[in-house]
Computed example of a mutant assay.
Amino acid sequence: MINCSMNIDHYTDNSTYVSYPLVVYGVVHNYIVFVLGTVANSVALWCISRCTKTNVAMKLLMMSVFFSLLVICLITRPVMAEKLIGSMYCDTSRPDDRVLLGFLILYSFCAQFELAAIAVVAVCRAVAVWASNAHVLRLRVAVCAVVGIFIYSFGTAVFLLGPMMANYIKDPLIANVVNGVYFFLNTFVPNITTMSCYVAMIIAMRRNGRRMATVKSSHSRFVNNATRGMFAVFVSNLVFGLPHSVYHMMPRPPLSYGIIFHVLFSMHFVVDPFVFMYFNHSYRRRVGERLWTAWVWVVGMCGAPPPKTPTHLTTSTTTSSGGKDTLHTKDQRAEQNV
Score class of each variant (00 low, 15 high):
3 N>W: 14
9 D>Y: 09
12 T>S: 15
34 F>Y: 04
40 A>H: 05
51 C>I: 02
59 K>S: 02
71 V>L: 03
74 L>V: 09
88 M>D: 00
89 Y>S: 05
95 P>A: 00
110 C>M: 14
113 F>S: 10
119 A>L: 02
129 V>H: 05
129 V>I: 04
134 A>D: 13
137 L>M: 03
146 V>L: 00
171 D>Y: 01
180 G>D: 09
183 F>S: 12
202 I>L: 15
202 I>N: 12
202 I>D: 13
204 A>K: 04
209 G>Y: 07
216 K>Y: 04
218 S>W: 06
224 N>S: 14
224 N>A: 14
233 V>A: 11
247 Y>G: 14
247 Y>K: 15
250 M>E: 14
252 R>L: 12
252 R>V: 13
253 P>S: 14
253 P>D: 12
254 P>Y: 09
258 G>E: 10
261 F>H: 11
262 H>Y: 14
263 V>P: 04
268 H>Y: 08
268 H>N: 11
271 V>R: 03
273 P>G: 06
278 Y>D: 00
279 F>P: 02
285 R>A: 07
288 G>V: 01
289 E>C: 10
295 W>Y: 15
296 V>L: 09
296 V>H: 07
299 V>S: 09
304 A>L: 14
306 P>L: 06
317 T>H: 05
327 L>W: 02
328 H>W: 04
329 T>M: 07
329 T>C: 07
334 A>L: 01
